[in-house]
């Protein structure tokens, strides 16, 4: 309950700064661009598909929604650090963090509250992001449940990004440093997926395990895979735990 009160304040503050709107606008513009080009591509290919028989899986689900979700995930990776960078850094810089902890709340509630506020932002972003697919449902017949599963996965993935960003924000008073660190960390986790064919075989499994986006593949396909769900959830819990540890640790030395 207290976590919700903390979240309410963070959410209010977030939406009083131009940053949230700018981030939202950029995210929607870029993902919208991808959506439009995917639809255009689909249209072009559908003309050719009429002449040639036997193109497998030529559905809006496979050709539009799935790549759209994957692209949105990568775009979120770039914008979430901008939202999480202020969570703890700002409070520490202002000194309000000290005051916040003089109220009857636990560190856990504070961390969860901050995560909830970011989750609220992500929810709005994804809802607006889903306008394209919703239009698709009006003019075409994609499948509903796989699309919902895909969005669920995207939400969870974005929460994972946020948990990492919040943790890195708890390490520093400087928002720029916090954002850069989060960018760096998320990019590395993304790029890891690219080198998995290059690394020696014995490391392949480790690299596979660490790279974040492959765990979203199944969701994008519209499949809820238990392993990937567990992976994303533990990623989230791991970084919430690290944040708590970092807050606790700083109170010993400040």
């Amino acid at each position: 309950m207290k976590a919700f009160i903390v979240a309410k304040k963070d959410f209010n503050i977030l939406f009083r700064s131009p940053l949230a709107y700018l981030t939202l606008a950029c995210f929607l513009f870029i993902s919208g661009y991808f959506f439009v080009s995917l639809v255009a591509q689909y249209q072009l290919f559908s003309l050719q598909a009429m002449q040639m028989q036997g193109v497998e899986n030529f559905t809006p689900q496979e050709w539009i929604i799935r790549p759209y979700l994957q692209n949105s995930a990568v775009i979120l990776l770039f914008f979430i650090p901008l939202i999480t960078m202020r969570t703890f850094s700002e409070e520490k810089k202002l000194g309000t963090f000290e005051l916040l902890l003089s109220y009857p709340v636990t560190e856990m509630q504070v961390v969860l509250g901050k995560l909830l506020a970011v989750a609220g932002f992500i929810f709005i972003a994804l809802f607006l992001n889903a306008i394209g697919p919703i239009l698709l449902f009006i003019y075409s017949k994609p499948e509903l449940l796989p699309t919902l599963a895909g969005y669920g996965g995207l939400f969870l993935l974005a929460l994972g990004f946020s948990a990492l960003g919040i943790f890195l924000s708890s390490l520093t008073e400087n928002q720029i440093v916090s954002a850069s660190l989060s960018f760096g960390a998320l990019l590395v986790l993304w790029l890891l997926g690219w080198i998995k064919d290059v690394v020696p075989k014995s490391y392949k499994e480790l690299v596979d395990f660490c790279s974040l986006l492959p765990h979203f593949e199944s969701f994008a396909k519209g499949v809820i895979s238990g392993a990937d769900l567990a992976y994303l959830c533990s990623f989230l819990i791991f970084f919430v735990g690290l944040t708590l540890l970092s807050l606790e640790n700083q109170r010993w030395r400040v």
């Binding site: 503050i13 009083r16 700064s17 202002l94 000194g95 000290e98 003089s102």
Partner: peptide, 13 residues
């Protein structure tokens, strides 16, 4: 009830 040295507050509220 605690008032820290610089009276830290949230300027956006």
């Amino acid at each position: 009830g605690y008032l820290p040295e610089t009276a830290p507050l949230y300027p956006e509220l």
